[in-house]
Design a protein around this nucleic acid. Structure first.
Length: 1144
RNA sequence: GGGCGUGUAGCUCAGUUGGUUAGAGCGCGUCGCUGAUAACGACGAGGUCCCAGAUUCGAGUUCUGGCACGCCCA
């Protein structure tokens, strides 16, 4: 090799990965590596990734690290595989959480307070507040190595984004898919606002409510009443129906005290009788079905006096009373109550569904209308004059009293249950309350959504038919509107005179309306505060001020509805709205739709996964047509691409995403949900500082499949360092040290290309064809290419876990077999031997390829390795490993036979060590022989050529292989179950028994002679078994120092001769002396003088016989069987050992 | 209450279409190496595969019913 100074830099021996990572971040920034990785693929086929927009309105936590790591690894991989993978960041910026944050800041929380504060300054604050934690998000994203275009991020409050959403809503509106209806919400009456499910969930606590059993007298059966149970007496005035389960049995019982008959579910009669403390003899029993349709008198007559006899026409042409009938409902149970359920659809979502079902039975003009005697303030309205102005919860007692006085109260009791209170005002109970709301008719698309879903590649697969599929099956119309302030305004304008409506698709379209007024509100605000983001002009309150002439009635004005929309709709519109499509960027949208890959956590099933699928199916699915804004001739289409709005009806499912990895929930150290108060997790920044981003990433990728619930364990993150990162580093470090010593110069490959592919390195004069290299070289390269094959096929299937398993196993084999077995080849004193060149080239190539393989997973470490490994080329190679192509397996290098043989060899070495340990014969003590018994001969010839390796590993003088190991081994023959199962079936246990009972050796002999053995089955049937049909197992006999593996048994010759023992002592002495050298902190070139004083003959003999060996190994210039003056001896089992450093 | 998922070694987790010796890492124990060295390696102990039934020649794996935990929805 060249005598010039090695171009390799010696790497730090104990690297600080966190520090190296920070350097790499700077390197990437300084050199625009990410941008270049994209530019390099500008003409490549695209692999489309969508970023599910996080909300920057909260701190990022470890769960987000997982999401962002997974979102990073596949785009990186695909990019290296030759695709163009753009990664546009995005931020979710609208919604209640933002309003709440701002409210906290301002010390206000009710809607009244917000309005008192002023909507205009409030939403301005919202817009500013969205970025509250932006810095942390960006820092985390960058530090984790998540490559994404933060500068080009889409933002849901941007005008272009809002306009895309408007366009889609207008499309839906014009297709008749938007409508107004009621939605029963959890309502905070005092604050005048609905609460989200999450908020409601926070406020449950146990309370005692009245439990009343009320009589509903049946109209057509005088003296007979339904018994109805409720814990909310205040809902009784708004009663509309009573529900029974058609399949349940009901009893008519006689109540002597009241002098009437009661209808109660049979299963509950006893319970109610016990509460009443009186007998309720059964008069008759009936099925729920027979009660259906029976009319009753409601407990209060507020509505009854006018509507009591109201009838309507059914769709069947018949006539039926609209209200106060018994209806069927299968949610009725007999767990509590009476089995007859009071229905006040205004105050219960389930009850409301019953009303909807009832309404559907009637012709449209004759439907029962919702009864609601309570106002949004939670107080009775004049529809129930008796209690007008009374807060509902205060009405419970007086209502019960009224019922009692009217003889309608069977029983008053108390009932303990959990009931939600407002989390912001915990004295305020929430009530369910109907609100006018806008809906999207998603139910009409249920089957198409299911069809679309069925084509999506879900990871894990059970999401498709499980959680997500079920959710789609039970689809209900999307409640779109929110009575809030900070959100995308619902773009519907209403004629103030006729109530007719139209949707607006973008801001210019609005401005072009005739008689436009109100735009000055925005102009004024902007003039007063030029800093205001222009995007705010499409938000409340500015947009609300904009009105125009009604096309429906002369002189009337069009005014926007007041609502904003659900921010899930924002995020679901992201596939087109991120581009501002269709107003602009048609080509970008066309290119980037649908996504090949998205990933979020499980909680997005009903969130982003759904909102995207629903919107895409409605807009671009089968049967949909995209209409041009033809009615709006004034709209200024700045971009001609707007005209080219495609018809996506032809777009094959699935869209808008083809593959989705659903990540499991991340749990804290204690296996519980992560929570700041419990402090059961580490802050990401601490992890980065202590262990580095690669350690965290590897923990995510290699620890478990990503969809399992992951327990965040600091120890596991820490473990990824020695298990993988450091192990790989050590191999590299080993290589660098010796490459530097020997002056190994890869630049001698004059035709080396900029990715240092093996083909191009072969131009080096010292580079030999792999086939000519030693076996271990061929072996490691075979393993490398096999690993490459596995990793590529896993990653193509989005399976990071098994890809990492393969990588981990390979790095282990590289470190613990290849390098270990090859060390002396690098130490060889001959600098220019071909074997040494082979060793260097093999390890160099292996490291290069491994570095590329691990690049998507551990981008920092791989970059560091790449920089070092390519350093000799002084800039002639690609600047970054991330600009390289992903390795492709070279099938010609994969030698499965060699792989199998080597595996057996390693097993034999391992068994030998095991046998030694068992027999308490330490490896340092040489043994004369091992005998290896194999099940068959196929590998013997190959193994024999590796005797020296086995001798060395096991420290024995000789190795013998045999298949005839009767002496040591018991043969047993078992059937090959998998093969014979189908053929033998029920007789399998018999076959197994017969094979076991026959002498193994006899069978094997017969098999060898005839190629088959015959077995007589009980049914006089003869079974011929060839050697594929059976499996030979070896079992070491007792009394031998032996260990057995799957196909081999290793037997030790335990006879220890004097010679062997003395050699063992010599090796022990060497070790003792080496330890002493270390104690004395010798430099490894220091010469020493050694003295050994012992009474034992073996020790004396060992020193005499093996003086050269001992001196050579320990760099001793002198070794005597005498004390060394002025040195303290170490006491050992061999006597006293003196070691002194020689004065130079 | 419904849906979905999970339950395998002390801990964290793998386990391919059912095939008869259930794996890994950590931890623990023993030993080794000392020219990758504040590292490293080998070997070992440790398992009623949550429980009970069923299907099957054969079940950690399929089915049914429980139990426990988690998530989502009521």
């Amino acid at each position: 090799m060249s005598d010039s100074v090695s171009p390799f830099r010696a790497p730090p021996s104990n690297p600080s990965f966190p520090n190296l990572e920070v350097d790499i971040l700077k390197f990437w920034d300084d050199n625009n590596i990410y941008q270049e990785s994209l530019a390099q693929r500008s003409d490549a086929p695209s692999f489309v990734f969508y970023e599910g927009p996080p909300t920057a309105n909260g701190l990022p936590h470890p769960g987000h690290c997982l999401t962002r790591a997974i979102k990073d690894v596949f785009p990186r991989y695909k990019t290296m595989r030759g695709y163009r993978c753009e990664r546009k960041a995005g931020w979710d910026t609208h919604g209640l959480p933002v309003e709440v944050e701002v409210g906290k800041e301002l010390g206000i929380h009710s809607k009244e307070e917000i309005e008192a504060y002023g909507i205009e300054p409030f939403i301005q604050k919202c817009q500013q507040s969205v970025w509250r934690y932006m810095q942390q998000w960006q820092t985390l994203t960058r530090r984790l190595g998540f490559w994404v275009d933060l500068e080009e991020a889409y933002v849901t409050y941007h005008q272009s984004y809002v306009e895309s959403v408007w366009w889609s809503l207008k499309t839906l509106f014009e297709r008749g898919l938007l409508y107004q209806g009621h939605k029963i919400v959890w309502w905070w009456a005092q604050g005048g606002t609905a609460l989200s499910a999450g908020e409601v969930g926070q406020g449950y606590r146990e309370v005692a409510d009245p439990s009343v059993y009320v009589l509903f007298p049946l109209v057509d059966s005088p003296g007979r009443s339904l018994v109805v149970w409720t814990t909310t007496p205040w809902t009784l005035p708004s009663n509309m129906f009573a529900a029974v389960h058609p399949e349940l049995e009901y009893s008519v019982v006689r109540d002597e005290e009241l002098g009437c008959e009661l209808v109660i579910a049979s299963a509950l009669v006893e319970m109610i009788a016990a509460k009443l403390k009186r007998e309720l003899p059964i008069v008759e029993t009936v099925r729920g079905q027979s009660l259906i349709g029976k009319r009753y008198v409601p407990p209060f007559d507020a509505y009854h006096k006018t509507l009591g006899e109201a009838t309507g026409e059914l769709t069947t042409g018949e006539t039926e009373h609209k209200l106060w009938r018994v209806v069927a409902a299968n949610f009725v149970t007999t767990e509590s109550g009476s089995g007859v359920v009071h229905q006040a659809p205004a105050f219960g979502e389930v009850d409301y569904d019953v009303l909807i079902e009832e309404q559907k039975r009637f012709v449209e003009s004759d439907r029962p209308e919702l009864l609601c005697a309570v106002g949004p303030d939670g107080k009775f309205t004049d529809e129930f004059p008796e209690m007008k102005g009374v807060w509902v919860k205060d009405a419970d007692k007086p209502l019960a009293r009224t019922l009692r006085e009217a003889g309608r109260l069977l029983l008053l009791d108390q009932y303990l249950h959990d009931y939600p209170f407002c989390w912001r005002a915990d004295e305020d109970p929430l009530i369910q309350y109907p609100r006018r709301s806008w809906f999207i008719r998603t139910t009409r698309f249920r089957d198409l959504m299911l069809k679309n879903n069925s084509q999506i590649g879900w990871q894990p697969e059970h999401i498709r038919d499980g959680r997500f599929g079920n959710f789609l099956e039970s689809n209900v119309d999307w409640a779109l509107s929110r009575e809030r302030y900070w959100g995308t305004p619902l773009p519907i304008w209403v004629c103030q005179e006729t109530g007719r409506m139209e949707a607006i698709g973008n801001y210019d379209e609005l401005l072009a309306k005739p008689g436009i007024e109100g735009t000055e509100v925005w102009a004024k605000a902007k003039a007063e505060n030029p800093e205001l983001a222009d995007d705010l002009r499409v938000h409340k309150p500015y947009i609300d001020a904009v009105t125009y002439d009604s096309p429906f009635a002369k002189g009337a004005r069009m005014k926007r509805v007041t609502e904003v929309i659900d921010c899930w709709y924002d995020s679901g519109a992201m596939p087109f709205a991120q581009w501002g499509w269709p107003q602009q960027n048609n080509d970008r949208f066309q290119d980037q739709f649908p996504a090949d890959f998205i990933s979020e956590a499980l909680d997005q099933t009903r969130g982003w996964f759904y909102s995207q699928l629903a919107i895409s199916t409605m807009l671009f699915g089968e049967g949909s047509t995209i209409t041009e804004n033809s009615t709006n001739e004034n709209s200024t289409n700045k971009n001609s691409t707007n005209k080219a709005a495609p018809n996506f009806a032809e777009q094959a499912y699935p869209h808008p995403y083809r593959n989705c990895i659903v990540l499991g929930l991340m749990l804290g150290e204690d296996g519980k949900k992560m929570s700041k108060s419990k402090k059961n997790y580490r802050e990401p920044s601490e992890i980065f500082d202590k262990y580095g981003a690669d350690a965290l990433r590897w923990f995510f990728f290699a620890g478990q499949p990503p969809w399992t619930a992951i327990q965040y364990r600091e120890q596991s993150i820490k473990d990824s360092i020695p298990e993988f990162l450091l192990r790989l580093w050590n191999v590299f470090s080993f290589f660098s040290i010796y490459a530097a010593i020997d002056g190994f110069d890869p630049t001698s490959a004059t035709k080396a290309d900029d990715q240092l592919t093996p083909e191009s390195l072969s131009s080096a004069p010292t580079y030999r064809d792999v086939n000519e290299r030693s076996e271990i070289d061929r072996w490691v390269l075979s393993e490398l290419d096999h690993t490459t094959e596995v990793v590529v096929s896993c990653m193509d299937e989005l399976d990071n876990y098994n890809a990492c398993q393969a990588l981990s196993a390979f790095v282990d084999a590289l470190s613990n077999w290849y390098v270990r077995r090859s060390r002396d080849r690098y130490w060889a004193s001959e600098k220019a031997s071909q074997d040494k060149y082979d060793a260097y080239w093999t390890l160099y190539e292996t490291l290069l390829q491994t570095t590329k393989l691990v690049a998507p997973f551990v981008p920092f470490l791989s970059e560091t390795l790449w920089q070092h490994l390519t350093h000799p080329f002084a800039g002639g190679t690609r600047k970054s490993v991330h600009l390289c192509d992903y390795p492709v397996a070279d099938a010609s290098r994969i030698d499965t036979g060699l792989s199998t043989s080597m595996k057996l060899l390693r097993e034999i070495a391992s068994l030998g060590r095991s046998a030694r340990a068992e027999a308490k014969l330490k490896v340092r003590l040489p043994l004369s022989k091992v005998e290896v018994v194999l099940a068959d001969e196929s590998e013997i010839a190959w193994l024999k050529t590796h005797d020296s390796l086995v001798r060395e590993e096991l420290n024995v003088k000789a190795v013998d292989y045999t298949t005839d190991g009767d002496q040591y081994v018991q043969y047993s023959v078992v059937p090959n179950f998998k093969r014979l199962g189908p053929r033998v079936g029920k007789n399998m246990p018999v076959v197994k028994k017969m094979l076991a009972e026959t002498d193994g050796n006899t069978l094997l002999t017969a098999l060898a002679k005839d190629g088959f053995v015959s077995i007589e089955l009980p049914g006089a049937e003869t079974l011929k078994l060839d050697n594929e049909d059976i499996e030979v197992r070896l079992q070491a006999k007792q009394g031998w120092a032996a260990a057995q593996g799957s196909g081999s048994v290793v037997v030790l010759n335990t006879e220890v001769t004097d010679e062997l023992r003395q050699e063992g002592v010599a090796k022990d002495l060497i070790r003792t002396i080496q330890n002493q050298r270390k104690e004395m902190q010798c430099d490894y070139t220091d010469r020493i003088v050694v003295g050994v004083v012992s009474d034992e003959e073996d020790v004396k003999a060992a020193v005499t016989m093996h003086r050269d060996l001992i001196c050579g190994e320990t760099l001793a210039s002198k070794l005597d069987l005498a004390a060394v003056a002025s040195v303290d001896p170490v006491e050992t089992e061999f006597g006293q050992v003196y070691v002194q450093v020689e004065k130079s």
